[in-house]
Nucleic acid binder design. Sequence first.
RNA 1: CGGAGCGUGGCGCAGUCUGGCAGCGCACUAGACUGGGGGUCUAGGGGUCGCCGGUUCGAAUCCGGCCGCUCCGACCA
Length: 437
Amino acid sequence: MRLSRYFLPTLKENPNEAQIVSHRLMLRTGMIRQSSAGIYTWLPLGLRVLRRIEQIVREEQDAAGCHELLMPTIQPAELWKESGRYDAYGPEMLRILDRHQREMLYGPTNEELITEIFRGTVKSYRQLPKLLYHIQWKFRDEIRPRFGVMRGREFLMKDSYSFDLDQAGAIRAYNTMFVCYLRTFQRMGLTAIPMRAETGPIGGNLSHEFVIVADTGESEIAYHRDFEKIDWIGSDIDFEGDLQPLVDQFTTKYAATDEQRDAAAEAALGEDLVTGRGIEVGHIFYFGTKYSKPLGATVTGPDGEPVAVEMGSYGIGVSRLVAAVIEASHDDAGIIWPDSVAPFAVGLINLKPDDAASSELCERLYTALTAAGHEVLYDDRAERPGVKFSEMDLIGLPQQVIVGPRGAKAGTVELKVRRSGEREELPVEAALARFGA
RNA sequence: CGGAGCGUGGCGCAGUCUGGCAGCGCACUAGACUGGGGGUCUAGGGGUCGCCGGUUCGAAUCCGGCCGCUCCGACCA
């Protein structure tokens, strides 16, 4: 992508409304623009990151045996009256009347809808278990939206739903998602600690939040020091095997948020207790027959009798994750994207587009890097070097390739690693070899 | 919803108290100089001062109402 043709409206100064670093940086790098309170437009750079995170979530869901579908954003009120949540949800749910005065709502979550789909299609225990998910925009009319996309009213969420014949099956599904989540966040370069959580209006009795440690988090958290050094899981998980030992490894140590915290347990930990703040990026629930019973989601069991299915739901805040990654990975100059979610892999800086040798070399690098499968943002603008350096650091692409007249003449380029700040001058061929080009 | 604050050009702000030509920095346009960490100089363009009403010879400024945004609190991925 040539920056001269791209849409990247960066800001030199901090917008007044942004208080936390991720919000400031998302505005300054031209990733998002606010439309109204808690509602944002995703500009090209931000959308790229959102899509990459979404794709990681999708791939890990698929790997865990979840099947993607897509439910609508607008739902009929009727279904929610059936489950009893139409009144329970309160003003946080955005209610809409269509032209026929039919009561509709912009979905804050999808348990009712997925259960309706399930009850109309799955009739026998032989068709179980099922794990379904979708990635869709949700709306919750938060009392006080804040921190940019961290706590917006409109947000992109992945929500999965499990259907099993019995509790043992449901717990198995719960464990599957538990491990899937560990892998998902790990791939984004995040350390997410699973914490015992309250179940909230979604309901149920087995629940964990996945929390990223960050000073700007909204939850008070406390956890065992061992979580900082626990062996992180590999990519070769057998989801068909017994996941309980792995889950136990992450759930036996103390870790809790807010109301779930236990003063006695924390006192017992002594020096091993770590407290701080965290950002909740995922939440998993087992809630049994809470929805299947009122909504009539039953299957015929082995004995010919109807059985209400055991369910769980599993959410990941996809749009929130964009902000969470920034909170976890930035410095004074700007964002530092982990490779896995970076909007572009390489930033190519042409320090002097007027210089024929520089521009020819840049064109060659741009073509070769692109051909080798790297996404390159090429700063070919007629700007001063300082502007280019600053903006490239600000938007935080992991690798920078810097070309100037001196190097172009000598046949060298400079490579800079954004995270470490390390710079290295190399012959062109050697630099290309680094990128497998 | 309670408490606090803000709304003046694309962004950041001054001016409001004490009514009298709408300003500054950045950004933008043109030219010159410059050229490895958000340059310098010159000349420009751009604003119904959030909206509605009132007071006044005269309102960004005073008064009333409304709207929007931000922060703190209770609620949430």
